[in-house]
Amino acid sequence: MKRVLMICAIITVLTTVGIVWVLFSESYTFFQHVSIWDFLTDTEWSPLSTNKHFGILPLLSGTLLVTAISMSIAVPMGIIIAIYLSEYAPKKFRYYIKPLLEILASIPTVVYGFFALTVVTPFLQNYIPNLAGFNALSAGLVMGIMIIPMISSLSEDALYAVPKSLREGAYGMGSTRLQTSFNVILPAASSGIIVSIILAFARAVGETMIVTVAAGNMANLTADPRETVATITAFIVNMSSGDVQQDSIEYQTIFAAGVTLFVFTFILNSVSFYIKKRFQEKYD
C-alpha cells in the first residue's frame, strides 16, 4: 500500500518534470532558428504568414492588457468584499455567502467566454461605438468577475486571522469600524492579501477560454482595450487546434509561447510563496 501511494506521488512529479522537459527541449529547437533577442524585441508575431515574424511582444501585451483590465475589477472588488465579510457581515450571512461566492469560481470558463462574447460585448457596444466584436475589454471585465472570489476568499481568511486584540486596540482608541478596517486590519493582513492578488494575477495570465472565445486571435501590439488582441494562451489554443505540421517552426512557436507563460507564472508563484513564508507568522 505504501508503495502505491509513493507511485502516485512519483507520477505527479514525473509528469511535471516531463512537461517542463518537453517545453524547454522543443523551444530549444525553436530558439536555434530564432534568436532570443528577436523573440523578445520584434514587435510582430506572424508565424503563419509568408513574411514570418516571431516577436512575443504582441502576445505579451495582449496578455497583460486583458490581465490588467481584469485585475482592475477583481482587486478592489475582492478586497472590499473581503473587508465586508470579515468586519461587517453578520456571522450567519458570512457563513452562507462565502460558499456562494466560490461558485463564481466553479463556473466553467468557457461559459464566461460566451457570456463575454454574446452578452457583455453587445451591451458595451451600445456605449462604446468603436468596440470590436472580439475585444480585450469584455474579456478582461468578465475575467475580473471570475477572479473576484480568488481574491475575496483568500483575503478574507487573512483579515479574519488578524488577532481580535488589534481590533480592540483600535476600537479602544475611538476608531470607527471603517477606520479600524482600513487603518489597522488591512495593513495587518497585507501579506495575505498581496499573496491573494499575486495568485489571482497568475490565474489571469494563464486563463485561456475566456480570451480565446471573446478577445479574438489577432496578435496586436496595442494598449487599446477596444481592439482585438491575442493572448499567449489564446495563441497556443488556436495553434494547437489548427493543422500545422509537427516539428515545423510554426509548431514550435507553441512551445516558445508556452515557456514564456511558464516563466511568468513560475516567477509569480515564487514571489507569493516567498511573501507567505516571510511574513506569515508575524503574530504568533
Binding site: 486584540s165 486596540g169 483600535a170 479602544g172 475611538g174 495587518a188 508575524k282
Partner: peptide, 18 residues
Amino acid sequence: EELRKKIGMVFQKPNPFP
C-alpha cells in the same frame, strides 16, 4: 467613538499596531 477618546484603555496582552 468620542467616549473612547476620553477614556484610554490598555489591554492584557500588548497589542501595538503593525
